[in-house]
Design a protein around this nucleic acid. Sequence first.
DNA 1: GAGTGGATTTCGCAT
DNA 2: ATGCGAAGTCCACTC
Lengths: 266, 266
Amino acid sequence: MQEPSPTSRSSFLFLVKPHLKEAKDLLQDSFRRRDFVIISGNCRCHYHGRASSSLGWGERATIVKGDGSVQVHRPVGYEPVNWQPPRCMLSVSLEDSLLCIRAQRPKPRETLEIAYDDLMFVTSCKPVDRADFVLYVSEEQMRDALVSRPSMLEDGLEVIDFERKVDPGFIDFYGKDAQGRVVVVELKRKSAGKDAVLQLKRYVDAVNETVGVAVRGIVAAPGLRSGAQGTLAALGLEYKKLTPRACAQLLQKRKIKKISEFFEQS
Amino acid sequence: MQEPSPTSRSSFLFLVKPHLKEAKDLLQDSFRRRDFVIISGNCRCHYHGRASSSLGWGERATIVKGDGSVQVHRPVGYEPVNWQPPRCMLSVSLEDSLLCIRAQRPKPRETLEIAYDDLMFVTSCKPVDRADFVLYVSEEQMRDALVSRPSMLEDGLEVIDFERKVDPGFIDFYGKDAQGRVVVVELKRKSAGKDAVLQLKRYVDAVNETVGVAVRGIVAAPGLRSGAQGTLAALGLEYKKLTPRACAQLLQKRKIKKISEFFEQS
DNA sequence: GAGTGGATTTCGCAT
DNA sequence: ATGCGAAGTCCACTC
C-alpha cells in the first residue's frame, strides 16, 4: 500500500456522441477484452430473475467491469437502480435502432437488459490497480470502545482502569468480571501473535503479585494467529474475538470519540 | 413509465487527459451546480468515520452525483471500494500537485478524501431521468409461490386447488387451514382495494353454499388501501401481507417457475 | 429522531 | 457448493 504512483498510464478509448453502430462495435471488443466500460446516454432497463423490474426512458450511466458486474446509475441515489453481480455473460446488439446490452447470470438465473437510443459518451479502458485496501480502527479506538462498553467482551465485565501502569508496561484494559476476578485485557488491532500472548502473561504475573484475588488474562483481537493458540492455552490465558468494525460501530452509536467524554457521561 | 424518449438531450462536458488545474476548475463548477460527475484516473483514498480505511495508488473511476453521494470504483468488484451516501459536503482543491476531492457528512461525522495525481478523463452533466422504477412479480408468480409453499401465508395452510372455477369467477387459491376450515385467497399484485375485498366476498359466499364447513376469506397482497380496511372487517374477511419480493425469493429458492413443475415435484 | 426489518442485498468465511 | 453472519451495509417505514 501507498506504493509510488506508476509513471506509465494505461490507455483508454472514448467515443463522444457516437452513433449506436459505432458504440456497438467498440462495446463488443471491450466486453471481449473484459475492459472497464462506462456508457452514458438515454436508456431503459428490464430485469428478470430473483424479482422483475422495469425502468422507463431516462439518462443514466452504466458501468460494466472486467469481472462481469454491471450497474446502472440514475442521476440521484447512492445505489444503482439496476445491476448485476460479477460473473455475468455480456452481449451487445443493435435491435430496432436501440443499442441493447444484455447481462446474464446463470445461477441464480437472471437477466438485465439495457437499451440505449442515444449516447452521450462511451469509454473503455483497463485500469491498473494493485493497491491493498486496509480497513481499520486504531488500538486506541478499540480501547475506547471496550471501556465504554466492557460487556462487548463478556457479560458482567466492568472497567476499573485503562492504560494502567504496571512493572512491564501499560495494561490496555483493567477490570473485574462478574465473579469479582481481576481481568487484564491485551488489545490488538490485527490478529494477535505469540508476542501479544507473552506480553499479556507478563502483565498478568505482575498483577498477580499485587492483588489477592484470581487474575484472568484475555487477548482481545480480530483474530489469533495459529502459533499463538498453543501458547495461550499453555499459559492459562483466554482469547476473545473483538473486531475493529464492532468497535467502530459502538463508538459511532455511543458518540464517544475520546475517553474523557466517557467519564463525563458516566 | 415507458414514456417516449425525449427529443432534446441534456448537454455535457468532457475533458480528456486534462491538467489537474483544468479539472479542478471544472469540478468546482460542477459540484456547485450539483452535476453528475465521473472522474477517471490514478488516485488514492482515505476514509475516516464509522471506521477508517486507506487505499493506495491505483486507477479508478469516481462517480459524484447531484444528491451529494460519492463512489469510487476499482476495476473489479460490484461494490465501490470507498463511498459516501447522499447529502455530502463536496469540495475540491489542489494540494501538492494532487487533485483532492473531499466529501464530508455531518451525521454521522465521516470524511472521504480522494486524491488524483493523473486523470484519464472527467465528465460532467445533468442527466434528465423522470421515469418510474417498477419492481414486481406477476399475480401468476405470486400464485405459484403460494401454491408451492402455502405456509408463507399461514402455518398449517394446505393447497386444495387454484384457479378454481366458482359461480362468480376463478378463485386464485383454494385450500384448508390447520383447523380443517376452507380457505379462499384473493391475490393482488399491488395494494388491494375495496374491489378486491368485495370480489373475495362473492367467492366466499359461493363456496359457503357448496361446502358444509366454515369458510375463511383472505386477501393476500403487498398492502391494503385504507378504504378496503373497513369493508374487510365488516365482511368478516382477513388480510395477510404477501410481498412480491417474498414470492420472487421463494420461487427462486424452490426453482419452481411454473405450476406444472410443482405437481411433478410433489 | 431513533429504532426496526428488508434487500434482485453483497461479501467473506466456515462447513 | 452451501449456509451463516457481518457490513463504514443502504434504505424505507414506524413510532
